[in-house]
Measured scan of single mutants.
Amino acid sequence: QVALSRTQVCGILREELFQGDAFHQSDTHIFIIMGASGDLAKKKIYPTIWWLFRDGLLPENTFIVGYARSRLTVADIRKQSEPFFKATPEEKLKLEDFFARNSYVAGQYDDAASYQRLNSHMNALHLGSQANRLFYLALPPTVYEAVTKNIHESCMSQIGWNRIIVEKPFGRDLQSSDRLSNHISSLFREDQIYRIDHYLGKEMVQNLMVLRFANRIFGPIWNRDNIACVILTFKEPFGTEGRGGYFDEFGIIRDVMQNHLLQMLCLVAMEKPASTNSDDVRDEKVKVLKCISEVQANNVVLGQYVGNPDGEGEATKGYLDDPTVPRGSTTATFAAVVLYVENERWDGVPFILRCGKALNERKAEVRLQFHDVAGDIFHQQCKRNELVIRVQPNEAVYTKMMTKKPGMFFNPEESELDLTYGNRYKNVKLPDAYERLILDVFCGSQMHFVRSDELREAWRIFTPLLHQIELEKPKPIPYIYGSRGPTEADELMKRVGFQYEGTYKWVNPHKL
């Protein structure tokens, strides 16, 4: 086992960053958080920038500027975001240094004079007029057009580079997404736009490419001749908990499936790229999406959770019991969808996408189930092999396979070949997804960000279904809070070829 401390991990990262040409360590950078008073800024962006600063992973002359409508001070920003920093008493001095680099400007999102004030403020910072500028839009999409237009007109660096990070949702359907994309691309070049999907920053999602293309053993079996089906799962054990009003506007397909799960599907299904260059990788992902037809209604199961009468606390409440959810809402909190990649490698292999709230566990994984062994000599005792990439929690890679049961006879039983990170790298604290992705933006690497043509294809696949749901308002199937979801989803999976045995229990190697 390799035991690495946080300091050692960050030392390795620093070495990698400083050796590259793309990370300008000594240049002045300004990180501007648009929507600095909001939840995302408070819980994710400010803490992430602090962790990067604490670990010495930001360029040395980096300033952080918050911008929002609320009249706040840096002290206010500190008060609301610091509880999420997880700072230790030993880091007190470092924390003071961090907040000394912070400033805040209040202004409207659609007022040109406010942006001119913001620009004057940035120019007044040390070497601010020639600094590289990175704008993070932690804002609702309704203000994107006004904000990007004003940034472009008043706040661009004339000497350094300018980059803009856009948070999902990128529209509600193909038409609104196209409108937003066309607007942003009329102001910024594609190499300046970073559409963030934080799932692409997760260690195991990034590991998929290495697993596939750096190991000879997987190449020959990664196709329709050997793989019976692919299941991509995202499960949350909690409901909307008072935030249903926002969720109800989008629903589970827009929230998770059309982005996170579809991105994971691309990494499983794509061909080997010409290189690890950002556009070479994204070219292959677009090719996969172009091979997927629009979702067919007979390959869809929609569910909505109801309270568990035997549960406790939140578990007793259904989705419609959330006071922020519109009365009688038919918005799905669970969806199972089957897609097919219609190309030579994957023809006929079902890709089953499942996601839901208020389920029995927290889990995100990719599961490849292989065909049955031909010419069975073990009297149907063999179960199908599976390769599982567990994204969260407890990152893991393992192969479910058959071995001989101890004893006199040739009785096979299920076991696993474990390729888990935790076994080799004991207690290594890896940077989280937002840390990686923000560092990628500083480096100018777009590999783990969504390109406009990729986004367009993703919406093309799901828009007809979303429009049909909005028009017909089908009643989702009720499922109990804390269950596996509607049984109809299991029946759909069985119908397209997935075999669920229920006889195997994964042993978490992190707890051995």
Rank of each mutant, 00 (worst) to 15 (best):
V341F: 04
P393T: 06
E416A: 05
I469K: 06
E488M: 13
L302W: 07
I477W: 11
V366I: 15
Y305F: 12
I292K: 03
K475V: 14
R484A: 04
Y481G: 07
L359D: 06
F409K: 14
Y425C: 07
G407W: 07
V441Q: 00
K494C: 15
S483Q: 09
L359G: 05
V268C: 12
K404L: 05
V373R: 05
R390D: 03
K405H: 10
Y305N: 01
H448V: 01
I438C: 08
L439R: 11
C266K: 03
E271F: 00
P431R: 06
D322H: 06
L465F: 14
Y305R: 02
E284W: 04
L387P: 01
P474W: 11
I352Q: 00
L289W: 00
V338R: 10
H371L: 10
R495E: 13
T330V: 15
I377Q: 08
I377F: 13
N277E: 12
A489Q: 14
E344P: 11
L419A: 06
D376W: 08
Y504K: 06
V338S: 12
N343M: 06
S483F: 08
Q263N: 04
E314K: 09
D322T: 05
V286G: 09
L437I: 07
L368R: 04
W459L: 04
P326E: 08
S329R: 04
L359T: 08
Y504I: 04
Y421M: 10
K426V: 11
P393C: 06
M257T: 13
M264A: 08
R384F: 01
E501Y: 11
L455D: 05
P273R: 03
Q380S: 11
E457V: 07
G303A: 09
K405V: 12
R460L: 05
M408Y: 10
Y305C: 05
L455Y: 03
P273H: 01
C443Y: 13
P474F: 11
A489H: 08
R327D: 15
G485K: 01
V441F: 06
K475H: 15
M447L: 12
R362W: 06
F498N: 13
G348C: 05
V397G: 01
P273E: 02
D347W: 09
W506Y: 12
K404F: 00
V301W: 01
T330S: 15
A297G: 15
F442I: 13
A315K: 13
L368P: 01
P406M: 06
G313L: 12
E314V: 11
K317H: 14
D322S: 05
M264Y: 00
D418V: 00
S293L: 07
R345M: 11
I469N: 10
L368A: 07
V295K: 07
R282N: 02
K505R: 10
V507Q: 12
R362K: 10
F498H: 14
K426R: 12
V397P: 04
E312T: 11
T276I: 08
L417I: 01
E386Q: 05
L417D: 04
E361R: 05
V373K: 07
T399L: 11
R354E: 00
A315I: 11
S483V: 06
R451E: 04
F409G: 15
F351E: 02
F442V: 15
R354V: 02
K494T: 14
S329N: 04
I292D: 06
C291P: 04
V268S: 07
N385Q: 07
I469H: 11
P464Q: 10
M264N: 01
P464A: 10
K505W: 11
T276W: 02
F334C: 06
N308A: 12
R327N: 15
D280S: 12
A269E: 03
N385W: 03
Q263K: 04
G307I: 00
G407C: 09
G356Q: 02
E284T: 07
S452K: 08
P393W: 00
P412H: 10
Y319N: 04
W346H: 03
A332P: 12
L262Q: 08
S329W: 00
G311V: 10
K400V: 06
E361Y: 04
Y319D: 00
K400Q: 04
V349A: 00
A489T: 09
D310S: 14
I389N: 01
L261W: 04
L387R: 02
Y340R: 12
E501V: 09
N259H: 01
E342P: 09
V341T: 04
V338I: 12
I469T: 14
E271Q: 06
A374N: 13
P393A: 08
D432A: 11
R424T: 08
K285I: 04
N299C: 12
Q380F: 09
G303S: 00
H448F: 03
A332W: 01
K400H: 00
E416N: 04
S293I: 06
W346V: 02
F370K: 04
I438H: 01
V428M: 12
L417F: 01
T487D: 15
V388C: 12
D310M: 11
Q499E: 15
F378L: 11
D310W: 12
L439S: 11
Q263A: 00
Y398N: 02
I480K: 15
M402G: 05
E386W: 04
M264R: 04
E344M: 08
E284K: 10
T487M: 10
E472D: 14
V428G: 15
L465N: 02
P412K: 10
L466A: 06
E344D: 09
M264V: 08
Q392Y: 07
R327Q: 14
I480Q: 15
Y421L: 12
T463D: 15
F378I: 07
L320G: 11
K473P: 12
Y398L: 01
D376F: 07
T420H: 11
Y425W: 09
A315G: 15
K475Y: 11
K357E: 03
